[in-house]
Design a protein around this nucleic acid. Structure first.
Lengths: 126, 126
DNA sequence: ATTCTACTTGCAAATGATTTGCAATTGTGT
DNA sequence: ACACAATTGCAAATCATTTGCAAGTAGAAT
């Protein structure tokens, strides 16, 4: 199902800023920070609205977010893939599994972090 | 080498707050947020100092940090292991590889994020 | 043990990311 | 085109983190 239809199906309106964010994310090959999205959309939309839109898109599972160095980065889609981030300049690249070892050659001093999230027992019970 | 000696060897002083943070981290079995460290130390030390201490400890590789949902969590040591985080309450558990599948049984709706960090080509060249 | 000095801390204020309240605006069904 | 609820834009609040600076303290020298 097309992303806009997912929104519509759940009763959300198709608004200019939402379309703008979706269209922008569709073109990306790497995750964007909220600020980057704001700027790439030429500051035509309110930053707070972009935050709200991204949170909504995350809730309906059109996008997903990752915390990289104190900032959230957003992505379309659910296909699992990963990232490699420069410790100095913050440059981010996507890391589909089959490219992993090629990309890694371009970095030194490699470290990794794996974080799983789920819903814990306690939260499942109330 | 003992952690305090690592500091001393690099010319840093062994101060009350630094010892307090190190001692606290030594007792933990899970990563702590800065706020948690501040509270567990009974607010006896300045929050800004704790930030500075943790940043220092990270630089000299006594601790390492991970961004979990917009907040940094700190750990002693370099041994690689991972975390599972409740999406609702933020509860964090450590995930040594050999325990991975046991822990996962206590969570539902599991997703994962792998982030590698390194130093990229550009940063290596200047 | 006392003094000296540079490194550290504590406090307050700044910064950066994100959230929230609210009035004005705008999709969407009728 | 109308009406209403959902959504946006703006401003102000909040939360994590950083920074400037004066006062305090660890550790070397005396």
């Amino acid at each position: 199902m097309k992303n806009e239809n997912i929104l519509k199906a759940k009763g959300y309106k198709i608004t200019r800023p939402r379309v703008a964010v979706l269209d922008l994310l569709t073109k990306q090959t790497k995750p964007l920070s909220v600020k980057e999205i704001f700027v790439k959309l030429k500051r035509e939309h309110d930053l707070a609205s972009i935050y709200r839109i991204l949170k909504l898109l995350e809730e309906v599972e059109i996008t997903f977010a990752e915390a990289i160095g104190g900032e959230k980065y957003y992505h379309l889609g659910k296909d699992q893939h990963h990232h490699i981030v420069c410790q100095k300049c913050g440059h981010v690249e996507c890391l589909p599994c089959n490219h992993l070892f090629n990309k890694i050659k371009n970095f030194t001093n490699i470290k990794h972090q794996l974080t799983l999230t789920g819903v814990c027992n306690k939260c499942n019970n109330n």
